[in-house]
Computed example of a mutant assay.
Amino acid sequence: MSYFPAFINFENKKILIVGAGKIAFSKLTHLLEFSSNITVLSNDFNTEIENTIKENNLEALKKNYDSNDLLGYDIVIAALDNIEIQKLIYEDSRKQNCLCNCVDLPKLCDFIFPAYIKKGDLTIAISTNGNSPAVSKQLRIYLEKLIPNSIISFLEEMKEYRNTMPKGIERMKFLEQKAKSYFSSLK
């Protein structure tokens, strides 16, 4: 079965990352582009993660994981080398009704982290359903080179039009023509 592509609003979502290694750090840095409501739980933190936690005013829990740690969280990322603890976190997430991602264990994931491109308000996600992160990464690099940085200011302009023009068919036509004209100018 394939993963459904969806964009989640993290505004009121509490996120827990269990682990503090290289992969946990990667997940943390990606999530920070979308939320700062993140807690990192680990019995040991490397300097890189400690500095990121301090710089972003995040919560850090220095301890071993136990089942009560998921209380109050909406999303948990298990980024540990210990598969048994990842399985426990997944089982606990079922009881707490929170979304779970167990790194490198797709069968224990409600969602996966896609490769993505983020330029201002533009976010493009790329996924191979977890089958080849390397392909997703290379496609991201390829596509990122095709998207001009001017897209950021263009999207700001489009947002302003959308917020100030009355709703209706005329606005729709105007915005469609502006988008068409922008992309035609890139050729």
Rank of each mutant, 00 (worst) to 15 (best):
L99F: 15
I53R: 07
S184Q: 11
F25E: 11
E91R: 09
L31A: 04
N57D: 10
E156Y: 03
R94I: 12
E157F: 14
L99D: 12
T128C: 01
S35R: 01
L175G: 04
K87E: 15
K119I: 00
R94P: 00
V103M: 09
L32P: 08
Y116Q: 12
F7R: 02
D92L: 04
I85E: 14
N68H: 13
I38F: 09
T47Q: 14
K137W: 05
F113I: 08
E33D: 14
K159L: 04
P148G: 06
S185C: 04
Y73G: 05
Q177H: 13
T128F: 03
I89R: 07
R171W: 13
N9W: 08
K54V: 09
T123V: 14
K187N: 15
I117C: 08
I75Q: 04
F174H: 15
S153H: 09
A78L: 13
C109T: 06
Q138K: 10
L99Y: 15
I89H: 08
A79W: 00
E59V: 13
L105Q: 15
C109N: 07
R162A: 03
G130Y: 02
R140Y: 07
N43H: 12
L58E: 11
N101I: 09
T52R: 12
Y90G: 06
K167D: 15
I77Q: 06
I151E: 13
S67L: 05
